[in-house]
């Protein structure tokens, strides 16, 4: 219970700053709406207001500040507006039995989740295999590692359309494949780096001990290096799954995808419905939070069962 107060304090500060920012962010739009409705606005005409600072506008039109909190198409929606939109596209759809309608974020979240999990699986596998190769082979260490580092310096937004076009060229029709590949591309790196560290974590004396038993390479891998790397693995899995989700969403942005949280963000942008963008953003954040929390629970249980003192 000791942690509740600081956690709630931080949350309150974030929401407070957000709430306070809504007024200046939406002031111009609120004045435009008020002017169109025939109210008095100082000065008149949005072109005249363009060069006047937001704070001056707020001071001169204090009576219109409140309407910035209930715009239909706000530049920055309020927390309650985002919450309401989220509920409308998730909980409310479930209540009406339409959880998997194309307007439901649960449907779009599910599409995104599938690619994320496939990408996570692929990326984690590649990361672990790469780490094993790097730890056991000097050649792999010198040839693989630099490419792994370089791969992460290429902006994924530049690479994503190429992967989608390429997989189309290869005759892969399912959208999930290129998305999973992009997710894996972002996800494998933290797993690779952590596992290299984890597999190398046994001390020289621990390896010497196995040598005194005349243990073989496979035995020292499965009995020492692999179990010793488990705490490192879990830490990287949590980073990896969040990266996989980001990769999937980036993969959904280009080339006219219509399903998935990324597509919702893009469509919301194109159709000028900021509430839809914000709801999709929050849905993505919540999804990431749930995935990371689940992995955290698995980590705690596994490490406890393995006898690591947490």
């Amino acid at each position: 219970m000791r942690n509740v107060v600081p956690v709630l304090t931080v949350l309150a500060i974030i929401v407070g700053v957000w709430w306070a920012a809504v007024a200046p962010m939406n002031m111009r739009a609120a004045l435009d709406v008020a002017e169109r409705a025939g109210d008095t606005v100082v000065p008149e005409g949005s072109v005249q207001r363009r060069d006047i600072s937001v704070l001056t506008l707020m001071a001169n039109n204090a009576q219109h500040i409140a309407s910035g909190y209930s715009l239909k198409r706000p530049r920055l929606p309020t927390p309650t507006q985002v919450g309401a939109e989220l509920w409308k596209t998730t909980g409310a759809m479930v209540m009406r039995g339409r959880a998997f309608s194309k307007r439901s974020l649960i449907y779009h979240g599910w599409i995104t989740l599938q690619s994320t999990l496939w990408g996570f699986l692929l990326g984690t596998t590649l990361g672990i295999l790469g780490a094993v190769a790097i730890v056991y082979s000097r050649v792999a260490n010198m040839s693989l590692m630099p490419w792994a580092v370089i791969s992460q310096t290429i902006p994924i937004v530049a690479l994503a359309p190429m992967i989608i076009v390429l997989s189309n060229q290869l005759g892969i029709q399912e959208r999930i494949v290129p998305k999973a590949i992009i997710a894996a591309y972002l996800c494998y790196f933290p797993v690779l780096v952590s596992m290299v560290k984890g597999l190398r974590s046994p001390a020289a004396s621990e390896l010497d001990l196995l040598k005194t038993y005349s243990a073989g390479g496979l035995q020292s891998f499965f009995k020492l290096r692999l179990p010793a790397s488990v705490p490192f693995l879990f830490t990287s899995l949590k980073v990896g799954i969040a990266a996989a989700l980001v990769g999937t969403i980036v993969g959904e942005l280009p080339t006219g995808a219509i399903s998935g949280l990324g597509a919702r963000i893009l469509i919301g942008d194109q159709f000028g419905t900021p509430l839809a963008i914000w709801a999709a953003l929050f849905a993505a954040a919540i999804l990431a939070g749930v995935l990371v929390t689940l992995l955290d629970v698995v980590q705690r249980i596994t490490l406890f069962k393995m006898g690591f003192r947490s």
């Binding site: 001390a203 004396s205 010497d208 001990l209 005194t212 020492l224 010793a228 488990v230 006898g307 690591f308």
Partner: peptide, 13 residues
């Protein structure tokens, strides 16, 4: 032979 190191070196898992 059996070898005993300075640190017990028991596997924590």
């Amino acid at each position: 032979y059996g070898y005993v190191f300075q640190a017990a070196g028991l596997y924590p898992w």
